[in-house]
Design a protein around this nucleic acid. Structure first.
Lengths: 159, 159
DNA sequence: TATTGTTATACTCTATAACTATA
DNA sequence: TATAGTTATAGAGTATAACAATA
């Protein structure tokens, strides 16, 4: 049973900035739920999709360290994520000439085809979800969330 | 090492609506990182804080089913979350008169004190993070993310 | 019969620390 | 010595299905 639009967040707020922040958080929460369902048949998490997209979009091959930095998770977790993707034959680790400690992570043919297929359906889904938002709405969202991130970065040392 | 503000998201985007959606997602991602660190000393996750806040804010006692509906997770997971909170003596399960299948979940004295203390520090943190956003900025964020959620609800059956 | 909560299971992701091989 | 990646460990969230007690 869908929750009413009048009160779609689980709590009420006393102050507007808190409410705004929680709206962002809750929206991402729902988004993760939707995307998990969306990717479910091919992938076991959105984290895996994010890696595939990063690999597809990057003009140069990425190492595990670079993936770790981009996704802000520890390198040990990248090892596990890639292990799972490698087991599905979606990526492979390729020796790097000149540094035998590193690997270049490459999409396999299957991986490339999958991410292309998924991305297409995914873009369609995104357009549907964002259909009611104007270009200005999108610009506003980008600008405002960027402010929030900048502020978080200024005020913490964890990101 | 903080990521530059020019390119603080890990990928570039071809279209604005996708970019906007990913900005929301990424912001929540960082927010979870920050809040996990923030709650770390007293609680092991933001999910636990959310439950405590729900309990504190609710004028009437909540059952596990109601928590499950508000947080959009399966009731079996609520059992586990409450087990962990109960072990820390932050909540207790109280028999419900008239329905012996249900429990009313109540904050203990310690739980209430903790959530009050945490919430105070948390509100301060939120004010700091949101300091650069005007009241109108906040209204915009609320309005736009609400649009996104409404659209997701219309287009999926998972939430 | 339907509902509330529990149990069992099986995956995820994440963080930390110690370790190996290489630079 | 420092760095890239792995391993080990521990703990958290999530989803699903089967179950007991109760309505």
């Amino acid at each position: 049973m869908p929750i009413s639009t009048e009160m779609d967040l689980p709590i009420a707020f006393e102050n507007k900035s808190h409410e705004a922040l929680m709206n962002v958080w809750w929206t991402a929460n729902l988004l993760r739920k939707v995307s998990t369902k969306f990717f479910q048949e091919s992938l076991s998490s959105d984290a895996q999709f994010n890696i595939l997209i990063l690999l597809k979009d990057s003009p140069t091959p990425l190492t595990q360290k670079e993936l770790s930095q981009k996704l802000l998770v520890d390198k040990s977790n990248i090892t596990g994520l890639l292990d799972r993707l490698e087991k599905q034959r979606l990526i492979r680790r390729e020796a790097v000439l000149g540094d035998r400690r590193s690997y270049h992570i490459k999409l396999t043919k299957q991986g490339d085809e999958l991410v292309t297929k998924l991305d297409k359906a995914y873009q369609k889904k995104v357009r549907e979800i964002m259909n009611d938002l104007s270009a200005k709405d999108c610009d506003d969202l980008i600008r405002l969330t960027r402010k929030i991130r900048a502020s978080m970065r200024r005020q913490t040392n964890v990101i």
